[in-house]
């Protein structure tokens, strides 16, 4: 799936953003299937806003976003759900786990929301890899941020996707754990021949990026 952004500008930030140069706002660019893209964004430049535009949580923008030449503004609820189940996976900056479900249930929900592509053993395997096997049966609400972040990462890897969108996915992890998580993410992307878009405040080398864009 090709993602194309054609001169998009968030309406609430329009005046401020048009005065600065950006690789994303008010320009035309596209992301080819399988590309690994890093978006570096200083605070307040609309990083999360951009992610939410791509994921159709918000659409208060001017311009057009297209997936494979289709304007995503025209998607209805069921089409959107299809995209989110098969094409686009996401790791939210604010994680968005169900606090009353256990970590395992949070992951399981995403695994079986569509016909499963991962088995239960792979959940165990990933949890072990990221060192959160022991909290799998704890309520997500009482897990630490670091643990929750890793649960959110595993959850995002349960579904089929062609793009993985990540909004500061390692913000609560130390470098050791980040390395493990990035390795897992890369492995899963390669397995699906999928691309990734990652936003962060600083430069990093967690993935062999094809492109680095400045917001």
């Amino acid at each position: 799936m090709v993602i194309e952004c054609d001169h998009i500008v968030p309406v609430p930030l329009k005046d401020r953003l048009l005065n600065r140069s950006s690789n994303i706002w008010n320009v035309r660019f596209s992301c080819a299937q399988g590309e690994l893209i890093k978006i570096k964004a200083p605070s307040g430049t609309g990083k999360t806003t951009f992610i939410h535009f791509l994921y159709s949580i918000r659409n208060d923008y001017e311009g057009v976003i297209r997936f494979d030449d289709t304007d995503i503004a025209g998607y209805n609820g069921n089409r959107l759900a299809q995209i989110r189940q098969y094409k686009l996976s996401i790791i939210f900056q604010d994680l968005r786990l169900f606090p009353n479900l256990t970590a395992r249930e949070n992951i399981e929900l995403k695994r079986i929301l569509q016909p499963a592509v991962k088995n239960k053993e792979s959940v165990e395997e990933m949890a072990e890899l990221l060192g959160i096997q022991h909290i799998l049966d704890q309520k997500a609400g009482i897990c630490s941020y670091g643990e929750q972040q890793r649960v959110a990462i595993i959850r995002a890897l349960m579904q089929p996707f062609t793009w993985l969108i990540m909004d500061e996915p390692f913000s609560h992890l130390d470098s050791e754990n980040t390395k493990k998580a990035a390795g897992l993410i890369l492995r899963e992307c390669k397995e699906r021949n999928a691309g990734l878009i990652m936003t962060d405040l600083e430069n990093d080398n967690w993935f062999p990026y094809n492109r680095q864009l400045l917001l």
């Binding site: 994921y55 759900a81 189940q85 968005r96 995403k110 929301l113």
Partner: peptide
């Protein structure tokens, strides 16, 4: 949140 995670309205 369910809708955001990809549950369809249907």
């Amino acid at each position: 949140l369910l809708l955001q995670l990809g549950a369809s309205p249907k």
